[in-house]
Design a protein around this nucleic acid. Structure first.
Length: 743
RNA sequence: UGGCCCGUGGUCGAAUUGGCAAGACGCUGGGUUCUGGCCCCAGAGGUUCUAGGUUCGAGUCCUAGCGGGCCAGCCA
């Protein structure tokens, strides 16, 4: 069966817009504020914005959202461009919100002239106080009703620099009592006598995000403006400005997706900046930082970041991605790209007692058997070697596959060795293992074909190099450092451990990515190739602690027991209405919906008067016309006619719903719509019987499965018949026919 | 507390728009193996938050509840 490509809701929207002809092209934008370095959260936005544009052969621009001169700096612009490019994306153009300052200002004057904006001279404190709270409406500014002429004059004074910072602001005149607080006369411009990194001192008033963003999108010709969920509330004002500025459909629309959150990772820009300025990390590109530049220095490749974003998906639900997925994607990305090498992090010496020769140079392949790549290097074997201290156990636990007294193991690419003697110092610490090797086992296999339990990595003590290795752990041990108040106390002091390791000669002077066998993937530092960063450990099924692997399950709060259903409204008038409806034969749940809803109840009353049968009418209204501002083009008469039609079996419930949608959107006469759309229900037993047989014949395997007990398939068969009949089959009849044939 | 958004195996997420609850990560067991890696096979894990309702049929629509998130910056 063909795999269905996994989708996401934004992709679906774009596809629909293209299919319906709303848009003939796709344009997105990535709009970072140049006040810091890009991090993993931005990487998601970049992948989605650029990725979607590329997928639909559209355009994605880079737009620096530089509306606040005191926070922004050119230093960051270069870094942003570098990071986007490094991630593998190309922009159509580089734009700045500041490119539109002139147009934005003109639009502002036009809004003022039309009485849609005003200059407010309240202080910041007053503005805040008068905005009200989430439960109380705001109170209008005393300056709210000044004349357009006076507002224009003040605005021009603001622009001309006649007023100090904070003296006045320009506000959109929307609604001080709006439930959505963003709509309570949002600020459009504030005075800032500050030098802007691009426009210099040309301006002393600067637009706010809410004013500038949507209009910048509209001016650039963006079709789909993607941002994160916390801007959901802002969409209303986005639309308001774009519309009032005169941009008509098709115009840009904003779509919000959930932010990326990764277990143990903090992505707050402000906090990241503090880590840098407090010197807790070495800089924005410290390998422990979740910045793009930090990940780059660590050795994570852009393909891994893209794959990770791809696998975590795009949705509207807040979520926290488990670190396992991150690790897994990085390993997967490096597996076929990182040649294998050996090094020992915590060495213990072994002496091969029966080794007579000096140094023997063995041939070791760069890749394991399952990776179809060539290449090899020379590896020195000698009398004294190092192995990993943790690869030896004096008293091996169960299932131990490594070295232990009297146990034979393989030294990778080398020989089979057996531990004969354990040498300890006075304190009892093991200082050396005396082993013997099998001269016949060169390359790692004995001629007699005997098997050994395990294979260890090793290096020659006589021909090895010291390398600096840096091992990392997350900066935070808690799942969501962003959510923690005292996050600074939660830093893991062992997030970076620097050690000197013993490495095979081929690692000396090497650069790039390597898998140090059995230890993990490592990358040399871009500026200092003598430093090896551990990018990620190898997966291991030995000594694993399951508790560390997944985020702690979020507690499912104990459900409070459901209160016995009571549909009767509290409000006295509604309760009376409820009683009447119930007396008329309407069920309580349905009456409970209609009674308190003036719009729906009025519709019910009128449609009832127009001749619709009460119960089906009430059911339809209550269960289909729920949260709605208005009824569109739907009239009570049309609704009554529709209910009558459905009640007489002329259309099935699918058809009735389709007609209802049409009535709301365009109005019309139900019977005519039914005919125009071919929705008349088919209840002809012969016709339906043929279709049922056809479906049953087309899916013999499923028929088998059904007879084997998978009764859920009944819905599938019905669905198939419904599809074949364009939705017009009588489903009850189909079920009956199906039952006759299958049961 | 008002408005809005969101609840699908442990985690992230699909579901032909009302018709078979995908896939990946993780977990368990097995196979393979000169990496306790990779790869292969099998398996466990679900009242799709809860309770009602509409419907032949609900993860999807309606109502209520529960839980989480966002909004009261002259930040973005």
């Amino acid at each position: 069966m063909a795999e269905r490509e996994s989708s996401n809701f934004i992709r679906d929207i774009i596809r629909t817009d293209l299919a319906t002809g709303k848009w003939g092209r796709v344009q997105t934008r990535f709009p970072p504020e140049p006040n810091g370095y890009l991090h993993l959260g931005h990487a998601k936005a970049i992948c989605v914005d650029f990725g979607l544009a590329a997928e639909f052969e559209g355009l994605c621009n880079l737009r620096l959202d530089d509306t606040n001169p005191v926070a922004e700096d050119d230093e960051f612009v270069k870094a942003i461009e570098e990071d986007v490019r490094w991630l593998g994306f190309e922009w159509g153009g580089v734009f700045h919100a500041s490119d539109y300052f002139d147009q934005l200002y003109e639009i502002a004057e036009s809004l003022v002239a039309r009485g849609l904006a005003y200059v407010d001279e309240q202080s910041g404190d007053e503005i805040r106080k008068n905005r009200g709270t989430v439960t109380e409406p705001g109170t209008p500014s005393p300056y709210r009703d000044r004349s357009p002429a006076e507002n224009l004059e003040r605005l021009r004074e603001m622009k001309a620099g006649k007023h100090p910072d904070g003296a006045m602001v320009l506000r959109a005149k929307i609604d001080m009592a709006a439930d959505n607080m963003i709509l309570r006369d949002p600020l459009m411009y504030r005075i800032r006598h500050a030098s802007h990194h691009r426009t210099g001192d040309a301006w002393c008033i600067y637009p706010m995000y809410d004013y500038a963003h949507g209009l910048s999108d509209a001016i650039e010709g963006v079709t789909h403006s993607i941002c994160t969920l916390e801007f959901d509330n802002n969409r209303a004002v986005y639309d308001w400005f774009v519309e009032k500025a005169g941009f008509e459909e098709p115009r840009t629309h904003q779509y919000e997706m959930a932010r990326l959150k990764l277990q143990h990772v903090m992505l707050s820009k402000r906090r990241l900046k503090k880590l840098v300025t407090d010197g807790i990390v070495d800089g924005w590109d410290d390998p422990r930082m979740p910045t793009i530049s930090g990940l780059r220095r660590l050795g994570v490749r852009p393909s891994a970041i893209r794959a990770f974003i791809d696998r975590t998906g795009v949705a509207r639900a807040d979520s926290l991605v488990a670190r396992d997925l991150w690790d897994s994607v990085i390993r997967d990305d490096l597996n076929a790209e990182a040649p294998r090498r050996m090094a020992v992090l915590d060495p213990i010496e072994i002496e091969i007692a029966n080794w007579d020769g000096g140094i023997e140079w063995l041939d070791a392949p760069d890749w394991p058997h399952d990776i179809p790549k060539d290449g090899s290097r020379k590896l020195p074997f000698s009398k004294t070697l190092y192995i990993e201290r943790e690869d030896f156990a004096e008293q091996p636990p169960k299932k131990w596959k490594r070295l232990a007294p009297g146990v034979e193991v393989r030294l990778r690419y080398g020989y089979l060795v057996t531990c004969d003697q354990v040498v300890k110092d006075d304190s009892g610490r093991i200082v050396k293992l005396v082993c013997s090797y099998d001269p016949e086992s060169k390359g790692g296999n004995a001629p007699d074909g005997r098997k050994v339990g395990g294979t260890l990595h090793w290096v020659s003590a006589e021909a090895c190099e010291d390398i600096e290795v840096r091992l990392y752990k997350p900066l935070f041990t808690v799942d969501s450092p962003d959510a923690e108040e005292d996050w600074e106390s939660l830093l893991d002091p062992e997030s970076r451990v620097v050690i000197t390791a013993k490495a095979e000669p081929a690692l000396q002077g090497a650069t790039g990515h390597f898998q140090l066998e059995r230890l993990g993937y490592f990358a040399t530092d871009p500026d200092d190739a003598s430093i090896f960063h551990r990018v990620v450990q190898l997966k291991s099924s030995w000594g694993k602690k399951p508790a560390e692997t997944a985020p702690a399950p979020r507690k499912k709060p104990a459900q409070k027991p459901a209160v016995a259903a009571d549909y009767r409204p509290e409000d006295a008038a509604a309760a009376a209405r409820f009683d009447t409806l119930v007396a008329e034969g309407i069920s309580e749940p349905i009456a409970g919906v209609l009674a308190p809803n003036a719009l729906l109840d009025a519709l019910y009353v009128s449609a009832l008067a127009a001749g619709a049968p009460a119960v089906p009418l009430a059911n339809l209204i209550a269960s289909e016309l729920g949260p709605r501002d208005g009824l569109g083009q739907l009239t009570p008469e049309a609704l009554a006619a529709l209910v009558l039609l459905a009640d007489s079996d002329a259309v099935n419930s699918n058809g009735a719903k389709e007609v209802l949608d049409v009535l709301i959107a365009h109005g019309g006469e139900p019977e005519a719509i039914v005919d125009a759309r071919g929705l008349r229900q088919v209840s002809d037993t012969n016709k339906l019987g043929d279709m049922v047989d056809e479906v049953l014949g087309a899916f013999p395997d499923r028929v088998e499965a059904y007879k084997g007990g998978r009764k859920g398939l009944k819905g599938f068969f019905v669905g198939q018949v419904m599809q074949r009949s364009q939705g017009t089959a009588n489903p009850q009849l189909v079920q009956k026919l199906l039952a006759e044939r299958l049961d």
